[in-house]
Amino acid sequence: MKQTIYLMAIREALDEELQRDDKVFILGEDVQQGTFGTTTGLVDKFGPERIMDTPLAETAVAGAAIGAAQAGFRPVADMMFGDFMYIAGDEIMLKAAKWRFLHGGKVNVPVVIMAAVGGGMKLGAEHSMIPEAMIMHTPGLKLAVPSTPYDAKGLLKTAIRDDNPVVFFYHKGLLGLPGEIPEDEYLIPFGQADVKREGSDVTVVATSAMVQQSLAVAEQIKDKVSVEIVDPRTLEPFDLDTIIESVKKTGRVVIVDEDTKRCGITAEIGMQIMENGFDYLDAPIQRVAAANMPIAAGFMEEHVLPQPKNIAGAIEAVMA
């Protein structure tokens, strides 16, 4: 194993896949410099033909990637901020997601749409989203939401090799997160949740940066409550089995997610547990998510996005 940080793990995954397969290329605004460091330096190794800086034109970036994917390439489009994916809604939600189905399986769209997501940087309503629900809601897309350097590298390599469109959300708050990864190549299959902490009293299902927040809370309250933390790692495909296995043991569930609460993924996951694991529940499911309002900037951000105290409060409530 070797020490790295989250953004370096992402860069390493891109580097290895660019090296392995000449059909892989990256395009997006300022990917040569790398706005968040995830693509920095790759142009020196692979050249500007494969690390393509584009103008500020999200529909063209997404369309070029998706179209080229149909025509034999494995492009990685960096949308910079996840919020900006809405600009390319037609390309991502209608074309990438639907075109295999719509055309009777005759065409595949092996594209990766990656974007920095999430709050904590006080950037406000149009630079802080983690629009997971929009993607998970859309049949045809896959969605990876890594919470550690290990997961980030392994999931991104799998994403690039997938014959389907994959949305890969890397969290801005995790970019400097340290962690260990193997020296040798590895991949993480989609649809396999990971138990990030074992426990016996309550199951916390958390994604992306909320995994790290939940781990910190669990550590703080370990003398009172034994918390098990399950990280789905991919929301489509979604590993419900691992969650249900955990619920059988604990009987109590808190779902923690940074996307908006209303029609958010906490609602979806909660209902799937109700449908498939109701008999194992000893208490109503609690959920922690962003308030039903745009994400405020500056000092107001913490009043919209979930905070450790909200997670601790929900655990307390479900244990009561």
Partner: peptide
Amino acid sequence: ADPENGALGAAGTIGSVFPMSLGWGLAAKK
């Protein structure tokens, strides 16, 4: 759709031709 004949699909949204064909053109060049 008739991929073997270069027809990689047809859209329901008018104007999506532009970004998507850009991708086909990029692939053609590459």
